[in-house]
Nucleic acid binder design. Sequence first.
RNA 1: AGGGUGUUAGGCAAGUGGUUAAGCCGCCAGUCUUUCAAGCUGGUAAUCGCGGGUUCAAAUCCCGUACACCCUACCA
Length: 567
Amino acid sequence: MDKKETQFTSTELQTLAELIFPNWQKLPSLEELDKRYPKRELPFGAIVNRVAPSPTGMMHIGGLYVALVNRRLAKQTQGVFFLRIEDTDQERAVVGAYETIVNSLADYGLSPDEGPMHNSDGEIVEEGNYGPYVQTSRKEIYHACAFDMLKRGAIYPCFMTKEELDKQREEQQKLEVRTGVYKEWALGRYLSFQEIESKIKAGIPYVLRLRALGEIDKTISWEDEIRGTLTVPENIVDTVLIKSDGIPTYHFAHLVDDHFMRTTHIIRADEWISSVPLHLQLFSAMGWEPPFYTHVSAIQKMAETGKRKLSKRHDPEASVSYYWENGFPRQAVIEYLLNLANSEFEDWRRVNPTSDYTEFRISLGKMGQAGPLADLIKLESISRDILSRMPIEALYKVSYAWAFTYDKELAEEMAKDPLYSQRALDIERDSEKGAKRLSTLKDLRPQLAPFFDHFLPPANELPFPDNVKAEDRKAILELVKERFKDSDPPEQFFENLKLISAELGFAGAVKDFKKNPQMYKGHVGDVASIVRVAMFGSTRSPDLGQVLKVLGNQTVVNRCNRAISVN
RNA sequence: AGGGUGUUAGGCAAGUGGUUAAGCCGCCAGUCUUUCAAGCUGGUAAUCGCGGGUUCAAAUCCCGUACACCCUACCA
C-alpha cells in the first residue's frame, strides 16, 4: 500500500463540506456559537463539571458515585455542576431511562445546577444557558463544528462498509498489526475529490472520520489528579466522529459539548483513560483549550466466591434503585459512597456527628485508584448510624415513605396515628446507650409492626417459653393487667414486675435465683419474657416498660386478656 | 494479540524511604442486662500479588513477572 493520501485544494474542501451539509448556510458559525455560549463568569478556581449518563436503562450506582464526586467538587469551588444526557445511541435508548436519571439524582439530593431537572411542579424541564442539554437536540451545533473541520480537512468522509471493515480487521489480525482504521488502512483518505463527490451524490452512506495526526511512537502526557502524570501513546486511529445518520459519536459530542458548555474538569470513570489521547487531539484540532481530565475507579465488583465485575444483569446492587428498595436511607448510600471516595470521611463524621455531609470537603487527590468492591455490610453499618442519629420526625417520615411503597400494610397502620408510631420508633433512642435497632428500613417489621394489633401472631401461636407453667403465666398477666398504668414512669414497670415475681414465687433478682435456683419457679427475667411475648408477640423487644407505656392502658389490658385466653 | 489501569488483613482503606503497617466494617470473647440489639472493653487477622535490584534502610524507588479489569465499535 504505497498510495498517496489525496490532497485537496481549499475550494474542493469547501465544495465537499457544502455537499455534506447542504444546509450549511443555516448552521451557526463557530463565532456565533462562541457568543451564544460565552465563557462563564465564576470565581477564580471554580470548577465546572458534569455527569453525562446515557439513557440506556437503570441508573448505575457508579453513575451516582461519579455524580456525587463531581457535584461536591463544583459546590466546594462555587462552580457549576450540570447534567447532560448522552443519547446519541438510539439503538440502546430505553424508554423512561431519561426520567430515571433525573429522578435518581433528585432522590439522592444530587440535582444539577443546569440541565434536565424538576421544576416546582415536579415536571422535568431544562434549566441553564448552555443548553440544550440533551445531545440529540444539539445536532446543528455538532454539524457546525463538523462543517468547520471539513473545510479545514481535519475530518473526511469514509464510505467503508461494515463488511469491508470486518474483512480488514481480519486481515490485520492475520498480519499481526494493529487493528483499526488508520494510516494506509484508512481507505477514505485516498479517495479523490471526484470519487467522493459522486458517492455522496449517489447517496452511498458514509461516516465522518478524524484525520488523526498522531504518531504511534510518540506519547502524550497529562496530569490526572487522582493518578498523577499519565503517559500514553498518541492516537493514530481515524475515529468516527459523525455516524452515517448524522449523529455524533461520544468523542465528538464530548469535544463540542464540553467546550461550549465551558466544562473545566472532566471527572469520569476510568474506562475512559484510553480515550484521552483522542480527546486531547480533538481539542487541539479545534484549537480549543482542553479541560482537565481525571479518572475515578468505578465501583464494579462484588465479593462472593471470588471477585468479579459488578454486572448489570446479575447483580441487583448495581442499580441505584436496589438500595432504597432494600430499605437503605438515601443518606446512607451517599455517605457510603463519600467514604469510598475519601476514606477519611468516616473520621470526620465521628468528630462531626450532626453536621450535614456537605460540610465535608472532598479531595480528588485522596481518592483511591483501585476499584472498590461493593460492601453491603459496611453500608448497613452506616445506615444503622444514620437511622439512629435522625431526629424522630425525620425517622418517621423516611420510614413512612419507605413503607408506603414496600410495606403497604404497615404504612396504613402508621398513617392512622403518626404520633403513636413516632413514640414507638423513639423508644430507647435518646438513652445513653443510644440504641440502634434499625439497620435498614426493612427492620420496621420486627421493630414497629408489633405495636399494631394487626401484626400480632394469633393468640394460640404466641411463642411463650415453656419454662413457665400456663397457670403462672396467667397469674403474671392478671397482675400486670391490674397494676399497669401508662401514667407511671417506664422504670416503674420493672419495679412492679419484681414485686409480681416475688408474689408468685419467682426471684425478683436474677442473682438471687442463681444462688438458690431450687427456691424459685424462675426469676424476674422469666416473668418479663411472659409479658414480652404477650405484649409484643416476640421473645425480643425494645425496653418492655417503654413498650407498654406506648401501647397504653387499654391495649395492655386487651393483649393480656388475649394471652390469658390460651392454654 | 496490542495499549492502558490496578494489586496493603474476610471487605473498605490509611500510608509515597526510617520506631511494634492507622482507622472503619466484619468476626470472636468479656462486660452491662428483664429479651434481642445497641453500648463499653479486649481480641482475631496483612511476611504490603510474586521475583529480583537500588539503599545503611522499601509497602513506599527501579526492572521483571502473575493476575484482575478497561480500551482497541457508525456503544457510551
